[in-house]
C-alpha cells in the first residue's frame, strides 16, 4: 500500500528537506493534533453545540500539502481539514471561535463548527455538501488561468466524495484546460459507515485521474515528509502550467465520523493497526533520529501550543454570541436588504 516512491536510503539527509521545513511540518502537525484532541474533549463536555469532525490520525494529509503554499494560493477544503486551516495560518483563536460560533468567528456564527475559513489567507469556508469545494476550487483555478496568474488551488475531499457527479465534472474540466489545481483525496477507508470498497470498484482512487488526462498517484498518507514532497511537486507543476494532479493519501481516522458516532462498524484490529501508523509519532521519530528534535525541545513546543489553546478558549468562551437579528446579515450585497418578518418579531 505505501508508495514505491518512498525513499529508501538510511542517511541522515534522507528526507531531502531542510531542517526548517521538517520542523515547520512538525509544529503544524502537533498543533493540529493537540487542537483536535482538545476540541473533542470540549465537545464531550458540552462546551459547544452541533458536533465535531475529528481528523486525528490523518493530519499528514492536510498539513503536508498545505505547508509551503503561498498566501495567495487557495485551499478548498471539506469537513476534516483542520490541519489545512491551521497550516495555512488561521490563528487558533479563530479556529476556536468558529467552533464556538461566537461573535469573533470568521463566519459570524453562521455555518458549522468545522467550517474554518479565511479569505485573507485564501481558505474557503466549506459547505457540508461533500466534494463540492472540489468543484468551486476548480472554478478558482479556472479564474486564475483566465487572469494569467500563477496561483494554485489545493482541493481536499474524502474518498467518499469522489463518488459524486460534480467531482467528476470538475476533474474532467480541469484535465481539458490543464488548470492549476492539486486534488488531495484523503482515503481514510471509510465514508461515515461505508467502506471504501463500497465506494468504488477500483482499488486506487487515484486511477480516476487517468480518465481525465492527468497524473494520479496513491501514497502513504501517514508519511508527512512523503505527502509534503509529492504535493509540493504537484503544486510546482500546477504553478508552471503543467496541469492538475490527483494525489490519493491512504490514511485513517482514529475516531468516529463525528463525535456522536461510536464507529462500531470497524474492527478493533483495524484501528489498532492504524494507530501504530501514527503520522505524528512517525515524523517525531524521524526528527529525533536526525537529531533535529530533542525531548526538551518537544516539551517546550507542546507547552507553547497548550498555552495558545488555553488562551484561545478563554477568549472564545468569554465572547458573546452575535445578536440574533444578525441572522439577517450577509444574504446579499448592501443593495438588497432582506425583507424582515416584522409581524412576528417580539
Amino acid at each position: 500500500m505505501p508508495s514505491k516512491s518512498a525513499t529508501k536510503k538510511a542517511k541522515p539527509d534522507k528526507p531531502g528537506l531542510s531542517e526548517e521545513i521538517l520542523l515547520g511540518l512538525y509544529i503544524n502537525i502537533v498543533k493540529t493534533r493537540t487542537t483536535d484532541e482538545r476540541l473533542r474533549k470540549l465537545f464531550r463536555q458540552g462546551r459547544f453545540a452541533g458536533t465535531y469532525f475529528s481528523a486525528v490520525g490523518q493530519e499528514a494529509t492536510t498539513v503536508g500539502p498545505t505547508y509551503g503554499l503561498r498566501k495567495d494560493d487557495i485551499i478548498a477544503p471539506s469537513h476534516r481539514e483542520i490541519g489545512a486551516a491551521i497550516t495555512k495560518g488561521i490563528p487558533l483563536e479563530k479556529i476556536f471561535a468558529q467552533v464556538y460560533a461566537r461573535s469573533n468567528s470568521p463566519d459570524k456564527g453562521k455555518s458549522h463548527p468545522c467550517h474554518y475559513g479565511d479569505r485573507e489567507l485564501g481558505v474557503i469556508h466549506p459547505s457540508s455538501t461533500v466534494a463540492s469545494q472540489a468543484v468551486i476550487g476548480t472554478g478558482c483555478a479556472m479564474g486564475f488561468q483566465i487572469q494569467k496568474k500563477d496561483n494554485v488551488v489545493l482541493a481536499f475531499f474524502g474518498e467518499g466524495g469522489t463518488s459524486r457527479g460534480g467531482w467528476h465534472e470538475a476533474l474532467n474540466f480541469a484535465g481539458i484546460h490543464k488548470l492549476p489545481i492539486v486534488y488531495i483525496c484523503q482515503n481514510n477507508l471509510w465514508a461515515e459507515s461505508v467502506p471504501s470498497t463500497k465506494q468504488a470498484g477500483i482499488e486506487n482512487f487515484s486511477d480516476r485521474a487517468k480518465a481525465y488526462g492527468f497524473p494520479g498517484e496513491t501514497i502513504d498518507g501517514n508519511d508527512l515528509v512523503l505527502v509534503h514532497k509529492r504535493a509540493y511537486e504537484a503544486v510546482r507543476r500546477a504553478r508552471a502550467g503543467e496541469g492538475p494532479t490527483l494525489i490519493e493519501c491512504r490514511t485513517y481516522r482514529w475516531y468516529g465520523h463525528s463525535e456522536i458516532d461510536p464507529a462500531d462498524y470497524r474492527s478493533p484490529d483495524e484501528i489498532e493497526y492504524w494507530k501504530k501508523q501514527d503520522p505524528v509519532v512517525r515524523h517525531e521519530k524521524l526528527l529525533m533520529d536526525l537529531g533535529i528534535l530533542t525531548v526538551e525541545k518537544r516539551a517546550a513546543m507542546v507547552e507553547d501550543i497548550d498555552q495558545e489553546i488555553d488562551a484561545a478558549i478563554k477568549i472564545c468562551e468569554a465572547a458573546k454570541y452575535v445578536e440574533p437579528e444578525e441572522a439577517y446579515n450577509d444574504v446579499y450585497s448592501e443593495a438588497f436588504p432582506v425583507r424582515r418578518n416584522d409581524n412576528i418579531d417580539v
Binding site: V135, I136, T138, G139, C140, M142, G143, Q147, G166, A170
Partner: peptide, 14 residues
C-alpha cells in the same frame, strides 16, 4: 454542475 460551480469559484477569485 461545473458550469455553475466553476463559475462560483471563478467569481470568488475576482
Amino acid at each position: 454542475v461545473y458550469i455553475a460551480g466553476g463559475s462560483v469559484g471563478a467569481a470568488m477569485v475576482g
